[in-house]
């Protein structure tokens, strides 16, 4: 039943970058509080019949009218709101994806107490009162790596009386690139990487020499975090110990022989993050993919992207961010 409904909704809802809500895609149903309100109106009506109190009829009818009015108001509160997708930052698997959604209105309208959420997810409140557009973040967990499509986005409101809820389900065709979850380990196997011709240093964990502090990267072992700095409110940093070794490194699929696919990807991801932080030049070999050593943020992102999409069909990625 639930699946059929979802399938029906999926069929009905056309994905688009920007959607303006109108009577075709807004639904209104009474809330539990609204049903309670109607129930008490019915009670008053029955009492009015039995005691033959004319004005109690009036009171019951007034409540019914207020309820009807609240349907109109609640619908109007959602009517003509425009939702537009904004670029999304890639995240690591296991984190929350923050989809950026922009709400806008025509200048003559006001919208209050709007709520955005994904299916049973955390609700993000928003308003369009003094501003014509507002940017909201709606969260959903990144359950697996790859190029994740956002679930259907639900925008709803109970304003003004809370007696009924107007909602709409839209598909903004949002996707998010999810990198594998980095898994920290001791990177000792890098020391015999290349020919040793260059003198640049490659940082290596587990050495004796204290090198300095660097920003915390998800997946870093917690015992290396410089907690004193955290306590001083200077942010999360990790203590680094280094050895000076050859910097030309190749990350290889076969380096993590014995792990399953996801295990290998997670460890490679950690290596990529660590190495790029050290601004080392490094390349990567995956089955069917080979990327030449280089440095820089673009290089890192390209590698992470390869890891994220490894053995995943890449259809329909043309419109990616």
């Amino acid at each position: 039943m639930q699946q059929q409904l979802t399938a029906w909704m999926r069929r009905r809802i056309k994905p688009a970058e920007e959607i303006t809500l109108n009577r075709r895609n807004i639904y209104v149903l009474p809330t539990r509080n609204g049903l309670l309100f109607i129930l008490s109106a019915a009670l008053i009506f029955i009492a009015a019949i039995n005691y033959a109190v004319s004005l109690a009829f009036g009171l019951a009818f007034m409540m019914v009218s207020l309820f009807v009015l609240s349907i109109l108001y609640t619908f109007n509160n959602l009517n003509q709101v425009t939702l537009r997708r904004l670029p999304v930052r890639p995240v690591y698997s296991g984190e929350s994806i923050a989809y950026n959604v922009e709400l806008s209105r025509s200048p003559s309208r006001r919208h209050e107490s709007l709520e955005l959420c994904f299916d049973r997810g955390v609700v993000t409140p928003g308003d369009l009162l003094d501003v014509d557009r507002v940017q909201l973040q709606v969260f959903t967990p990144a359950t697996q790596r790859g190029y994740l499509s956002a679930p259907l986005l639900r925008i709803s409101t109970c304003f003004p009386l809370g007696l009924c809820r107007a909602w709409s389900v839209v598909d903004l065709d949002m996707h998010c690139l999810v990198y594998p979850k980095p898994i920290a380990f001791v990177m000792s196997q890098f020391n015999a990487g290349g020919g040793g011709s260059e003198d640049s240093a490659l940082l290596r964990d587990g050495s004796e020499e204290f090198y300095g502090l660097r920003d915390y990267v998800p997946g870093d072992p917690l015992r290396q975090v410089a907690w004193k700095n955290v306590a001083r409110g200077q942010g999360m940093h990790v203590k680094q110990f280094v050895d000076y070794v050859d910097s030309r490194v190749w990350l290889d699929w076969d380096m993590f022989f014995g792990f399953d696919v996801e295990g290998r990807l997670s460890r490679l991801c950690y290596c990529v993050l660590q190495l790029s932080r050290q601004q080392a030049a490094f390349g990567m070999k995956l089955p069917g993919v080979e990327i030449k050593p280089a440095t820089g943020i673009e290089h890192r992102d390209a590698l992470l992207r390869e890891l994220a999409l490894f053995q995943i069909e890449r259809r329909g990625l043309a419109g990616s961010e």
Partner: peptide, 30 residues
């Protein structure tokens, strides 16, 4: 109204006015 106002704007503005307008609008159907 005050209960359903956005908590992003905690100052209840124009509740009384809106409530009066709503009551008047509910009158014809009543």
């Amino acid at each position: 109204l005050a209960l359903n106002r956005s908590h992003l704007h905690p100052v209840g503005r124009g509740n009384l006015r809106l409530a009066t307008v709503m009551a008047l609008q509910a009158l014809p159907l009543t």
